[in-house]
Amino acid sequence: MTDFTSLVTETPAEHPFAPFVRILGKGKRGARNMTRTEAREAMGMVLDEKVEDTQLGAFLMLLRHKEESPDELAGFTEAVRERLHAPELTVDIDWPTYAGKKRHLPWYLLAAKCLAQNGVRVLMHGGGAHTAGRLYSEQLLGLLEIPLCRNWQAVGEALEQHNIAFFPLGDWAPQLQRMIDLRNTLGLRSPIHSLARILNPLGARCGLQSIFHPGYQGVHRDASSLLGDHAIVIKGDGGEVEINPDTISHLYGTTDGQPWDEEWPALSDRRHVKPATLDPHHLVAIWKGDIEDSYPQLALIATMALALRGLGLTRAEAFAQAEQYWANRNRSI
């Protein structure tokens, strides 16, 4: 006897998340951006795990194809912040690090460490080694003695004792980490890589952001403006918050909801030669002063100046302060 599946004689109810997929995917003429409210609601459902895996994959890839709008990024951020339950901790700089480096070593780690030695409180966060062939912050924390924290209490203690803490995304926003980890399943990076840079989970005085692809910097700045955040967005080396001293750097800033722009000239007359290999111990040697190397010193001093610019100093003041910090650093490691 053959068993047949039951006939569908009644139209099944639509899944509550389906309208958001339809907004993004309803053809060339029917698709549109989500409003800020719609984006907040959609991300809220994702974070509350009220979405099917198939819907999530479709949602992320439709966003990736369309490219996120400022309203969508602002709405997503609001949904995340509403669910964080983070403690009230004083932070000066929010420093997202999600890209990894492949052309140069992550000199931004020395910049952050040097700022922390001088009383600037820095929260760093990242999403792990998601792409082969890159060097990630998480792989170097022990070498550089940057505290790795696995809960908010440890973050507070590290900030009090060392003025710097690294908090993996998976420990404070596991749903977002899961979406980042879909990169090798879907074959493309999802918009969560961009979203994580905006989150500023502890409401730091200034959020630094780096977006490598042209055109996205303004979108991120506009999203931060909508949120009322003080932020500076750059096209950093390799997608990390690190000034490339060989090129002009454009700062896309926002303060009190008002955008501003600033252009920093290149710091070198000619381009430096890219190193043949990336040896992490070169970071330690530069920190200790065992070797001199033009590119890293220019890069890390300019990156410190970027952070200090975000804390209210003028460009000239920021560079002078950064150079003083670097010259007087505690070289033990």
Rank of each mutant, 00 (worst) to 15 (best):
L188A: 04
I234M: 04
P12C: 00
R221M: 10
G75K: 10
K66A: 07
M1D: 10
A231E: 07
Q321M: 10
L208M: 06
T54Y: 00
L227W: 03
R183S: 07
W287C: 02
K26Y: 12
K26T: 08
W172M: 06
R40E: 14
G30S: 09
G257W: 08
S225Y: 08
N184C: 11
V8N: 05
G142R: 08
G128H: 05
L306N: 10
E263F: 03
L144S: 06
I211Q: 03
H282N: 13
Y98K: 14
R331G: 00
T9W: 10
H213A: 12
A74N: 01
L195A: 05
R270K: 14
E14I: 09
R83C: 02
T254F: 11
Q175G: 12
P106I: 00
L300D: 02
I301Y: 13
Q321P: 04
V241T: 13
H15F: 03
E82Q: 13
I286T: 09
D94C: 01
T35D: 08
P168R: 12
W172I: 15
A112S: 01
K288R: 14
A165T: 12
R221W: 07
I146A: 06
T97P: 01
W287F: 06
S137D: 08
Q324C: 09
M1T: 07
K50N: 11
P174E: 00
T90F: 11
V284I: 15
T185N: 13
D237V: 15
T5L: 15
C114K: 13
L202Y: 09
D293Y: 13
Y295A: 00
V91N: 04
E10F: 10
A223K: 05
M179S: 08
